[in-house]
């Protein structure tokens, strides 16, 4: 059962909380910026990623993917926070279906992660990645859609957890491998077989390739396929989170 008003309410709440908490916005950008500026500048002269691209350009969509992954997954922590402080119960006893609740929160988390990524996008524009308005609009849409999947995943993890430490441990345990085993830092073309397998099983790979296609006009795979896999991943995570939240003790 889908309740539009409830979805909008929870969506707006996430955004309101995000806007009121400036430190969260800045905090989420530190690590990705470090990666982009240090790795990007450090390896720019050394690495040839082909296609006439500098490493810096190549890396930019990957690091935006990192912001979406971190931002999306960590927005699940709001559920843990709500559980600790009791607000989750207020939502759970309201006449709102679990599916609506999960959709509203996922949209909220996806929007806030997209905002963070958009800040990074603006920074990359300033340092030399060139995008026309159509590309920017497509990037924003893609970023939102990618963040949607990661947020739903964060929610699914948070559904059964009661403490922050547990959430942080699990998220870090999943997040770091997802980041390093995607095509965010290196091209997928000439990888050893084991790494090729790992990257092809990683949902993040497809989101990064999709953004690379939009921003740079080239990618290691068909963007239609990347979008299809991203969409399937989003649907699966959304269903999983809704199902986990509908399980009562």
């Amino acid at each position: 059962m889908i309740q539009t008003e409830a979805i909008l309410t929870l969506w707006q709440r996430e955004i309101l909380r995000f806007v009121r908490n400036k430190s969260r916005i800045i905090g989420g950008l530190g690590t990705p910026l470090l990666f982009l500026l240090v790795l990007g500048s450090g390896f720019d002269r050394l690495l040839n990623v082909g296609g006439g691209l500098s490493y810096f350009q190549f890396l930019a969509p990957g690091v935006i993917g990192m912001v979406l992954l971190f931002g999306g997954m960590f927005s699940g922590i709001n559920v843990v926070y709500d559980r600790q402080f009791g607000f989750l119960k207020e939502i759970l006893v309201a006449p709102v279906s679990r599916a609506s609740m999960v959709i509203g929160r996922t949209l909220g988390g996806a929007t806030t992660a997209m905002f963070q990524a958009a800040i990074l996008l603006v920074l990359t524009l300033l340092v030399g990645v060139q995008l026309d308005p159509v590309q920017i609009v497509l990037m924003v849409l893609a970023m939102t859609w990618i963040a949607f999947g990661f947020t739903a995943m964060g929610l699914a993890i948070a559904a059964k957890l009661t403490d922050f430490q547990g959430f942080q441990l699990i998220v870090n345990f999943i997040m770091m491998p997802m980041f390093f085993l995607s095509g965010a830092l290196y091209p997928l073309d000439q990888l050893p077989p084991w790494l090729q397998t790992a990257t092809s099983l990683n949902p993040m790979t497809y989101g990064v390739e999709l953004m690379r296609f939009i921003a740079l006009g080239q990618s290691s795979m068909d963007p239609g396929l990347a979008l299809a896999i991203q969409t399937a991943f989003n649907a699966l995570m959304l269903w999983l989170a809704a199902w986990l939240f509908s399980q009562k003790e």
């Binding site: 909008l8 309410t9 309201a94």
Partner: peptide, 27 residues
């Protein structure tokens, strides 16, 4: 209607916003 044993409000929002959100969740 329920008042839980532990606090169950969103302390980053105002009183008015908390109540408005409640009303919207209850349609």
């Amino acid at each position: 209607g329920i008042v839980f044993q532990d606090e169950s409000i969103d302390d980053e929002l105002t009183a008015w916003e908390n109540l408005d959100m409640h009303g919207r969740l209850y349609g």
